[in-house]
Design a protein around this nucleic acid. Structure first.
Lengths: 261, 261
DNA sequence: CCGTAGTACACGTATGTACGAGTTGAGGAG
DNA sequence: CTCCTCAACTCGTACATACGTGTACTACGG
């Protein structure tokens, strides 16, 4: 393995040893001395280089992992994390003109970017809406919604999970309540049912993933998620769908256009 | 201190001991048994309860801290993290009608929500634009921009840092290059100078903060940041400003309206 | 009554040791 | 030549110990 030129510790510094070591490795990554996917020196090598205990090294590596800069692979080593291709979500991605092409937004976009899109884990149930969803849809807990949950993958890599809620009164018995919602997706179906869509409102939060989300999105440690809730409104002002999605922040850039007027 | 009812370890489980302990405490937080701001049992108490070494306890606590659920305070203990009031950024926040009230967006909004807004660390320089900014503004590295950097605080708590770049050709010698940009902020000044604003484009990423960002935003560990880049376009299609902002994801919900047409 | 020193307690940093478990490649058996 | 075993190397988990440093309360003395 190529020798990685790491500085020595500064004994006069009051900065903790493990932080100094993390700084050295972080610098190497940011300077490009350690490229994406490259192996960071092993714990044993770092122990020898710095003459410190293993726990000190592990602390340093944990700092970097928490920053999302590295990933440890059991039995193999620690590697500089590589970034997946980024999907840019434009604010016109749900425009009718795209929907009329007959493809759902995700499929069309991913194919356009040369990726192989997949959707799996499609589950459809009818149940009472969660409180926040009921509020957005103007329903009560006594009402019922069709719940469509699914997971989106690009080239086999999961990037997003989504759960849509549609008032059962609208969706029950329609193709919206079928696993394959047909060309153009559920928004096309809603319009066919006479619910002419006017606009969507998206609310975006970001946070560290829950354990369950880390699993289903195969997230590396130190990678936050976007939590996006989209509500679809018809021209008569009614909310007809709420879509709750969680996506890897690593794989997405969200883009929106704001009016100045 | 009130006794916290934590389960015992499951020796038959193949889940690591420190993860089981983290699970117990996480559950207590999520169930509300441990409320916001409340003290988690000390490392010594947990060691005794579970009969494990301190390192095992510290590992468990570090997991929770990495998830943003707790904060450790040196000499005091570990506490369930409390969430600051959330600022909701609406997609019309830069609408002209707000600007014409004579207040910058941040000030007006924060006062409206009953908070005490502050802006500090205002620094103005003229320099060559970073590559990505030059591209957005349609400039070359030979061009020069006025760079306005500042930090926004609510009730003394920093929530956002922002850096604006305006082509020097536009801003030089105007109030835009003054620390106090005057009523309505720099967007009002741009319009006075004849640059009629048409729309903004915002690009949103999220990631773990850099060390510098953790410091300037006083971020707790385990809290990601939004990295938002806004470009202002005039009615004749020219980009006249790029604003690069970093904000605590803890303090913000971003909200946007998307057209369905 | 107040301030200060002391003390108990909290987390932070660091050392050393041991064993478990996944990965890899070399070398020997067939 | 191929397959398998095994050793070596990797990170993961857990133990025990020590000392540093910040916090908060108490007891003492002025």
């Amino acid at each position: 393995m190529a020798e990685l030129p790491l500085p020595d510790l500064d004994p006069t510094s009051d900065r903790a040893v493990f932080r100094q070591i993390a700084d050295h490795i972080r610098d190497a990554i940011e300077q490009g001395v350690l490229a994406e996917g490259e192996k960071v020196p092993s714990e044993a090598q770092l122990m020898q280089h710095y003459g410190v205990a293993r726990m000190t090294i592990r602390n340093a590596l944990q700092v970097l992992q928490g920053e999302g800069l590295t990933v440890a692979e059991h039995g193999r080593g620690v590697f500089v994390r590589s970034h997946p291709p980024v999907r840019r979500l434009a604010s016109d991605r749900f425009a009718r003109r795209h929907r009329e092409q007959g493809k759902a937004a995700f499929i069309a976009e991913t194919e356009g970017a040369g990726g192989r899109p997949t959707v799996d884990s499609i589950k459809i149930t009818e149940e009472a809406p969660p409180g926040s969803v009921a509020e957005l849809l103007g329903l009560t807990a006594a009402d019922s919604v069709v719940r469509r949950s699914r997971r989106y993958l690009i080239n086999g890599q999961p990037v997003e999970t989504a759960v849509s809620y549609i008032p059962a009164e609208i969706a029950r018995g329609t193709r919206i309540a079928q696993p394959d919602s047909g060309p153009g997706g559920i928004y096309a179906r809603l319009e066919e049912l006479g619910h002419r869509l006017d606009h969507f409102v998206e609310e975006i939060k970001s946070r560290m993933p829950l354990r369950e989300e880390m699993r289903s999105l195969k997230l590396a440690p130190g990678i936050p998620v976007f939590h996006l809730v989209r509500t679809a409104y018809t021209t008569d002002g009614r909310a007809v769908e709420v879509c709750d999605t969680v996506m890897s922040t690593d794989a997405y850039v969200l883009s929106y256009e704001l009016p100045a007027r």
